[in-house]
């Protein structure tokens, strides 16, 4: 099983698509390693700098609605995985992106909008928010200079099994 948690990257926008997460021109790569420098390269958010070296310290993404819409490219979870980001928390996900995350043994956690808003309260210039995941008890906890709080989340039995198995290939291969 992968490790989950660490410094949070807040992406304050809905409908972030997979072209923004990893532009199509890099889909000619056939290794995950080659994707590494191009994470979120075309992301359109006021004030967001894809070249910020701090980006690569992030281990968790917290964002809004319909994250990962658009293309089916699994390069989107891969570019997160290769940058050690194994958790994305959003108020909703596009179907294919969400499935791709669990298929890779990664976590796509859906929380109600009000919980997302509370998580965003920890975003600040020097907030240095950090988030931990208690996978066995389905809880996340966030800590920053603005305080700490925790939230329960739910995962389907299938999603949980995929994370525990390390992904869909491992799960399917032992069963079908």
């Amino acid at each position: 099983m992968k490790t989950f948690g660490g410094k949070v990257l807040f992406l304050d926008r809905s409908d972030i698509n997979t072209d923004e997460i990893i532009p199509a021109k890099y889909l000619t790569e056939i290794s995950k390693e080659a994707l590494k420098p191009h994470m979120l390269e075309d992301l359109k958010i006021e004030g967001f700098d894809p070249c910020d070296p701090g980006l690569h310290e992030a281990r968790v993404i917290v964002t809004k609605a319909n994250f990962g819409c658009g293309s089916s490219r699994e390069h989107a979870p891969w570019v997160f995985e290769i940058n050690d980001i194994n958790v994305v928390i959003a108020s909703s996900f596009a179907r294919i992106f969400r499935q791709n995350m669990f298929n890779c043994g990664m976590l796509a956690i859906e929380l109600p909008e009000e919980a997302i808003d509370r998580l965003f309260k920890h975003k600040g210039t020097n907030a240095n928010a950090s988030l931990s995941v208690d996978f066995n008890n389905n809880r996340i906890a966030i800590e920053s200079d603005k305080g700490s709080e925790s939230f329960a989340y739910s995962l389907s039995a299938f999603d949980k099994a995929l994370v525990e198995a390390g992904g869909w290939v491992e799960f399917a291969d032992s069963k079908y």
């Binding site: 089916s72 490219r73 699994e74 979870p77 294919i96 499935q99 791709n100 298929n103 890779c104 389907s156 299938f158 992904g167 869909w168 290939v169 399917a172 291969d173 079908y176």
Partner: peptide, 20 residues
């Protein structure tokens, strides 16, 4: 349905795909 590379890989190998 469009799927990612992992679903595709299992599809190629086993001829199955999981959906909600």
């Amino acid at each position: 349905a469009g799927v990612g590379t992992t679903d595709l890989e299992v599809g190629i190998l086993k001829g199955v795909c999981a959906f909600r």
